[in-house]
């Protein structure tokens, strides 16, 4: 009797652990085998040879195709610390010149912030740029900050998606020094891990 109960428990625990770990791994950038450029991971919309990436693509769509451009994602800061929804960050640095780009703030599942103004990010046309190299300086967080700002209210995790709409960049990704870096500005008291 005890052996049968233990057998059932082991099977149930194994199945639960397997499904939970699969759910966690699908959509986790570390498992998708994506190419990295600095802190950014590139997403390929075409062939899905990586099973984790293929499973993600079924639900989330395939990103951008080769003649559309390139999609870069990050869930970490420039010094490789995970982004925390309770913290404020600055995305600062250059963007590829002469290219339509959009930067979107979401959680890891792709949900957008609760935002009456529907401000989910910035684009090449509405972001303020500074200096001869036209660097951007965008802050994100729960408390409003001056300058280009995106509220992260309502998000439980953070993911930044930088989409560069250019077929040229799809075949030759920009280098890390052509892309902005994400740095920590501060965290809510008790909210940061």
């Amino acid at each position: 009797m005890l052996a049968t109960l233990r057998f059932i428990l082991v099977i149930l625990a194994g199945v639960f652990l397997g499904l939970t770990s699969a759910w966690w791994a699908v959509g986790n950038l570390r498992f998708e085998g994506a190419r990295t450029v600095g802190q950014w991971s590139t997403q390929n919309g075409g062939a899905k040879s990586n099973p984790y990436e293929a499973a993600r693509a079924v639900r989330r769509g395939g990103g951008l195709g080769p003649s559309e451009g390139i999609e870069l994602l990050t869930e970490t800061t420039a010094d490789n610390k995970p982004l925390n929804a309770a913290c404020a960050y600055e995305i600062a640095g250059p963007m590829p010149q002469g290219v339509l780009w959009t930067l979107t703030v979401s959680d890891r599942s792709g949900h957008l912030p609760h935002n009456p103004a529907r401000r989910f990010g910035f684009t090449a046309f509405d972001a303020m740029t500074f200096g001869p190299t036209r660097q951007v300086r965008i802050s994100i967080g729960r408390d409003v900050r001056p300058g280009d700002f995106v509220s992260t209210v309502g998000l439980s995790s953070l993911r930044l998606t930088l989409r560069l709409y250019s077929p040229t960049l799809a075949t030759r990704a920009p280098s890390a020094d052509q892309l902005p870096a994400v740095t920590l500005l501060g965290c809510d008291e008790g909210g940061a891990s």
């Binding site: 194994g14 652990l17 397997g18 699969a22 499973a55 693509a57």
Partner: peptide, 15 residues
């Protein structure tokens, strides 16, 4: 072992 097999099966069968 069961967890590993379930994990592999779930990921491969999802698409």
């Amino acid at each position: 072992c069961i967890a590993g097999l379930t994990h592999i099966g779930a990921v491969l069968l999802a698409p």
